[in-house]
Design a protein around this nucleic acid. Sequence first.
DNA 1: GTCTATACAACGATAGAC
DNA 2: GTCTATCGTTGTATAGAC
Lengths: 225, 225
Amino acid sequence: MSAEHRNSPPETRDRILDAAERLFVEHGFEGTSMRMITGAANANLAAVNYHFGSKDALIQAVFRRRLTALNETRLAALDRLEAEAGEAPLKPSRIVEAFFGTALALAADTEHGGNLFMRLLSRTYNEPNAFVRQFLAEEYAEVMDRFLGALFRALPGVPRTEVMWRFHFMMGAMSFAIAGIESVHAMAGMPYETDDPAKLLPRLMSFLLGGLRAPLPDFGASDTD
Amino acid sequence: MSAEHRNSPPETRDRILDAAERLFVEHGFEGTSMRMITGAANANLAAVNYHFGSKDALIQAVFRRRLTALNETRLAALDRLEAEAGEAPLKPSRIVEAFFGTALALAADTEHGGNLFMRLLSRTYNEPNAFVRQFLAEEYAEVMDRFLGALFRALPGVPRTEVMWRFHFMMGAMSFAIAGIESVHAMAGMPYETDDPAKLLPRLMSFLLGGLRAPLPDFGASDTD
DNA sequence: GTCTATACAACGATAGAC
DNA sequence: GTCTATCGTTGTATAGAC
């Protein structure tokens, strides 16, 4: 994919990616114009189309740059857990931490802009843009497959459907944990004592594990389909 | 607010609201053009600006129409719980159900388009558009205040900060429960056994209550794991 | 009052000069 | 590789028909 532009001077292309990432966080995809991006990146308007082909492809590139690394870290963490455990089943808490702890670690990285990216990613799970959704689904396929499989083995007594739903719910909680701090800040009308990112992971982990280990739902008898 | 247009024939204005709601769900706010809306509503392009003033104001009107009713239902449910309990503290599960059960009930209403609206609302919590965020925060202020207060009283042993965070996480789980069914469907690469909406509420409630009642996080002194 | 027709600046995208 | 000029479309504003 990047082969045709591999030997282009990194300057312009990377400046565009950095500016786009920052502006997408601030104003969303459609709220960020190509002219805003190229203006902030000190590049010409047409440079975006030259380097990426379209605005959608630029969005893809912004995600790929970070998401590939994030998911490789997640898979490596899972590999390590499975290597340590040998034949024994993994503890669900370790699996959950490998997935969500990795994400929150990146969300806490203010130095290389990981926090900006994670805010962008969190809100993009619900993105209506079909192009973006499709890309995210493909980028996540392997990771979801591995982690869901690990959870299935770690929770043999829980129906797979319930595990999948709960993983889904956990993704939602993480999404809000990362992206929605200031939104609930406003909704609650009260100040949060602290936004110390070091406290966010234990807070989220307690909640996620409580939800994952909750008693199975009772669907009642009346509605049998 | 609606006084100046109160006695306008409901036809055009309501057709615009219905078309806008449907198209916003499908294509997002910025992915939906005024011309798409007025085309679907069989109205003139300028009718939107006449009835609502701007696209942002139209978005606001789409939300207000549904959200006011939803939040009044939520408050009425909480009123009823508190009246029944008298001086006794409420059960956290009842409070949670009054808030999230009401939302899921609306999300299950395919007859009057409540399901479409809830998908829209769920994704809008993370909306970058400042205009929309501000409006949502105001519209939710009273409800959040009442429900958080009820939870504080129901969980006197839990620090208020933790209650607020967990309510926040619960909102995220609900958001994904409503909006993200097809997204995880794609990510997981496996079909969900059933999307029976009647099963969604018990599923979500189990998870939420498990998370809400989870042991409090241990922030530790260092990284002791 | 309710709505239509139309104009306008800014948008994403592209072709072609350099 | 980069830039200018330009195309069709966007949100918005307004003048005037009924």
